[in-house]
Simulated assay, not measured.
Amino acid sequence: MRSAVILAGGRSQRLGREKALLQFDNRPLICWTAEILLSAADELVVVARDQGHAGSLEEIVSDKTHPDRTGIRFTWDSINGFGPVAGIEAGLRAARGRLAFVTGCDLPFLNRMVIQRLFELADRGSGYEAAVPVQPDGRFEPLHSVYERERMQHACQRALERGERKVNLLLQELHVSWVPIEQLLPLDCEQLSFFNLNTREDLEKAQSLWAERR
């Protein structure tokens, strides 16, 4: 069984708007993200910032994406305001798959084939406990990665106990398959999978690209 986790609890201070609710083709971005992830995994866990926020997202996602709610569950950060480590821990704790793809709610061009390839690279026969894309400049993409669920959850728990907020440091505890994004070019020739929304300029560019691709 494969799981997918969306971290939707961030307050997106730089953008000034909640990323999960940004509109693309008159639908919130989180609904598009949920559709893609449900096509690549067997279940989806949406992580909100608190219980009330989880209820709001559940109404939006279930109504516009999966009315019967099959395969989607909602939870919230284990420590409110702590950042992605708390969100990852909560999402992996709620998930049931041996492997889980973890992502944010601000990547409008997620690619199902890329996600499936990362699952393959982290699968049991490989000996790895994670598949993490690496940019040409050496930057990791920990919020576009597949993890062995129990190992990564335990690493997050230990980080929370230490007060450690940096996801990259957690990767030192795992046997990671580092995946140069060049290897993924045949599946995503424009490399838009990793395009995320941090500023208004990013949003304007994404909406323009979205219109072209649609």
Score class of each variant (00 low, 15 high):
Gly83Thr: 07
Asn111Asp: 14
Cys105Ala: 15
Gly52Ala: 04
Val46Gly: 00
Leu143Cys: 00
Ser78Ala: 15
Arg117Ser: 10
Glu43Lys: 03
Ile60Asp: 07
Gly71Glu: 12
Asp123Val: 04
Val61Ser: 03
Glu43Cys: 00
Gly71Asn: 13
Glu59Trp: 08
Glu120Val: 04
Glu59Ala: 09
Trp76Ile: 00
Ala86Arg: 06
Thr65His: 03
Arg49Lys: 15
Ser126Arg: 15
Gly83Pro: 06
Arg96Ser: 15
Gly71Phe: 05
Ala94Glu: 13
Ala94Lys: 04
Ala41Val: 02
Gly104Leu: 11
Arg139Ala: 14
Phe74Arg: 06
Leu57Cys: 02
Gly138Lys: 04
Asp42Met: 00
Ala48Cys: 08
Ala131Val: 07
Asp50Arg: 01
Arg49Ser: 13
Val61Tyr: 12
Leu44Pro: 03
Phe82Thr: 06
Leu107Val: 08
Asp42Ile: 02
Leu143Phe: 12
Val134Pro: 00
Phe101Leu: 09
Ile72Val: 10
Arg124Trp: 09
Val45Asp: 10
Leu110Gly: 06
Ala122Ile: 10
Leu44Gly: 04
Asp123Trp: 14
Asp77Lys: 02
Asp137Lys: 03
Val47Asn: 01
Arg112Leu: 07
Arg124Thr: 04
Arg98Ser: 15
Gly83Ile: 08
Leu107Thr: 14
Ala100Thr: 12
Phe74Glu: 06
Gln116Lys: 08
Arg98Phe: 11
Arg124Val: 01
Ser56Asp: 07
Pro108Tyr: 11
Ala90Cys: 10
Val85Pro: 03
Tyr128Thr: 00
Gly104Asp: 08
Val45Thr: 08
Asp68Gly: 01
Val61Thr: 05
Ile115Gly: 00
Ala122Asn: 11
Leu110Ala: 02
Gly71Leu: 13
Val114Asn: 04
Glu58Arg: 14
Glu141Ser: 11
Pro142Thr: 05
Ile79Ala: 12
Ala131Leu: 08
